[in-house]
Every structure is written in structure tokens, then in C-alpha cells.
Design a protein around this nucleic acid. Structure first.
Lengths: 138, 138
DNA sequence: CTTGACCCTATAGTTGCTATAGGCCGTAGA
DNA sequence: TCTACGGCCTATAGCAACTATAGGGTCAAG
């Protein structure tokens, strides 16, 4: 009745590699499952749920530590929602900062790339000159 | 006349940590400098130039491997500029892809965060419900 | 002559996995 | 019955790009 899964099935169901699941277990992010007579890991539905939660958080860019925090929070149903909200906001702020950084970077790369009009040899490559900015005085 | 630098000066001039400079040397990205009688590294202007180039490329998000490629290209002054241009374009494409990813992610986080209107406890936290999407059937 | 800032090497830790070696389990075909 | 195959097991090492630590040598100033 209570259906169980072996590690390979769990991996397929969650689009996770088998080694990654074992890794999550090793760092305490996944609880240790039962073992079969042959010492195979035997997972229950709760493990599948947990792994899906972890993967979804990872897809959203949370670090493993943040995922662990979120998971811990979610299991304490009496607690205030406040910390979850805070974690989410902080993460969003990080993501937005990274986007800003990358946008600036992309602009600069476009700028640098535009210097190259099919120039001839390295000796007068304007891209390298741009990369060298601050190296030679002019 | 030919001015020299010790590793700490080089670090200060390029805003790089001392250990990082040694690390660059260990992976062949920085050439091995002369040594003083006391076995201190003694750098010349060329090393400063090289390190500035490396740091600038890193700031622009190139991987160490890409930096090594760019440096190798830039030293062969007869060669065509084509490869430099290609590397830069490829990198720009990667950066743009990452920006797109992060934008999607930020949108989702904002969406999730908007669910929380100061809800009370974890047991009815809408953020966690959103993170659980796909876990419970409904 | 000792304090303190600097330098040296070598090794281990970080994050989030991935890869490899070496071996057991269970079943299906010859 | 043997054997080949996929799946499972543990343990360890490797990836990027550093950072941190331990345990020591050097050198100029007070």
C-alpha cells in the first residue's frame, strides 16, 4: 500500500542524479531512508516530497544552506511566516543585484566588441586594447 | 631604474589578494618571477601589466581558462584578431543567457513573495505553498 | 633585541555537485 | 547453471576560483 521508491526511481521522478541524492543525504538535506535487506535505500512518499521541494528551491537559485533553512521553517508549522518572507526577499535582492552587475558587464562587452571592425592582426586589435585599458598609459 | 615590486605591492596596485597572485602563478596564469636572496618574489613592470590584464578580464566575467586564451592570443601579434572577437562574442552570449535566466527567476520570486501579505503562521504560509508547487496535488 | 609587518610553503576548506574505482544484488537469456 | 547486464553500494578525488590556516623565515624600526 505505502508505495516505495529506489534511488533510481526517485532520481527519474525529480530529474536529479542518483549521486546528487546521495550527496544531499550526506550533508543532511535529505533524511536517511530505510534500507532493504540488500542495503538498498528505500524511499517513501515523504522523501519524494522533500526532494521535490529541494529541487524547486534550487531551481529558484536558493543556496543549499537557504534550502535547509526553508525546509526547517516549513516543518515548524506554528512559527511565524516572517522568516520565510525575509529569506525570499533577501534572495530576490541578491538576484536583482546580480542582474544589474551582469547588465553592466554585457554593456561593456558589447562596447568592446563593437571596436572590432574585422581588424587585421593582434597587433592592432582594438578588443585587446580595450581589455588592456589601464595597462598602457594611453 | 627598472622598478620592481614585491607581492604585497602588486596586490595593492591591482586590488588582488596576495594568495590569489600566488594561485595564479601556480596554475601558470602568471609567469614565475625572479626571487630575492631571501626567496621573496620580485616582480617587474611586465608582471604588473599582466596581472592588470588578468584582473580586468576577470572583472568582465571571463573564466580563468578564457583569460589564459586571451593572454596567449594577445602575445602572438602576427595572428588574426578573429579568435579574440569570437571569444568575446561567445562570452557576451553566455552573459546574456544568464541575464535572461535570472530575470525569469526574479519574476518568479517576486510572484511568490507577493503571496505573502503578512500571513500568520507557517501552516498557511503562501510562500511555502508556492515553493511546494508540484508537491501536494492541489 | 624584540616587535611587527611582510614574505615563504604546504595543505585543507568552500559550494554544489560530478566522476571514478571497485564491488555487491537480482534477474533474464543461453 | 552460468553469465551478462543494469542497478545499487561505499569511498575518494576532481571541478572552478579562490580563501584560510599552520608553521615558519626576513627585515627595518624603536
Amino acid at each position: 500500500m505505502t508505495e516505495t521508491y529506489r534511488i533510481g526511481e526517485l532520481a527519474r521522478l525529480t530529474d536529479t542524479k542518483v549521486v546528487t541524492i546521495r550527496y544531499y543525504e550526506s550533508i543532511g538535506l535529505m533524511p536517511e531512508p530505510e534500507r532493504s535487506a540488500a542495503n538498498y535505500r528505500v524511499y517513501a512518499k515523504a522523501h519524494l516530497d522533500r526532494l521535490r521541494f529541494v529541487r524547486r528551491c534550487r531551481d529558484l537559485g536558493f543556496s543549499l544552506e537557504q534550502v535547509a533553512d526553508l525546509a526547517a521553517l516549513s516543518s515548524d508549522r506554528q512559527q511565524s511566516c516572517h522568516d520565510v518572507d525575509r529569506l525570499t526577499r533577501m534572495h530576490l535582492a541578491e538576484v536583482e543585484a546580480k542582474i544589474a552587475d551582469l547588465n553592466a558587464l554585457a554593456a561593456e562587452l558589447r562596447n568592446i566588441g563593437a571596436q572590432c571592425e574585422g581588424g587585421t592582426t593582434i597587433s592592432n586589435c582594438r578588443i585587446l586594447e580595450a581589455l588592456d585599458r589601464g595597462r598602457r598609459s594611453a
